[in-house]
Design a protein around this nucleic acid. Sequence first.
DNA 1: TTCCGGTGTA
DNA 2: TACACCGGAA
Length: 290
Amino acid sequence: MPEINSEKIQKCRDIYEKNGLNKSAIKLFQDIIYEYYDTYKINFPWRQTEDPYHILVSEIMLQQTQVNRVIKKFQEFIGKFPSFHTLADSSLEEVLKAWQGLGYNRRAIYLKKCAEIVVDKYEGKLPKDRKSLKDLPGIGDATSASIMAFAYNKPVNLIETNIRTLYIYFFLYNDENISDSDIIEFVEKTLDRNNPRKWYNALMDYGRMIKKNFGNLSRKSKKYTKQKPFKGSDRQIRGIILSFLLKNGETNQKTLLTTLKIDNKRLFRILNDLKNDGFITAEANVYKIL
DNA sequence: TTCCGGTGTA
DNA sequence: TACACCGGAA
């Protein structure tokens, strides 16, 4: 475990408890985060670029997915699709193949759609304002804020799981059922407005470290939800169908039925969902990637 | 076997 | 507001 400056952390908490989040508490907090970052920062591939396209690809991949799983996929992806134009012009099949292993395949569809919109509507340049970014498919609060910070170095309020964990650890440790609006106040007040890009990289590294060593404090957040088991779920079946179609090309329903050994009605429902989600086409009981 | 998360939709 | 969505690691 990396060295943690417990003394400074305790002092920071003490000042906050006694006087609220005043200047000296904020200064101390920033010092702790930057001190850690100076020693332990990691140069992820997406930190070696400010290209908005690369940042977008990495942020979509990092939704719901740990950094270690993203690193290799990110490099392969931008190797295959080096620009908005190449991604927009590629087939969905190629893009989904490059996405295999990351999970939540809808993100690949959204990302390709983003590229098409950027090319058609924004002359190949990713918009620079939060609102336009949020209007793009697959980009919500966290991703739009991340792009503002990491691509454009703008001082927005950004909250995601590592940041949530970090602020709970420092200031809300004894609370339960914490809402994001409470955390955002800390995010806003402690933000290093002169260096948002560096600041959020540092925050996230620190948050990851807290998670690793002190458990997932996001469980204290209202956002936290437990999920259903993956084994035997529709999610699992969808993944299997998709990788089967990517490997074997167009396939009829009977082949899928014998491969998957599931109820005919259930298979039909799942295939219909995949069709509605824009993954596949269905004609005369033959299915293939769109 | 259990765990984890950001976005879109109903 | 609740729920669906992936797959690899612990």
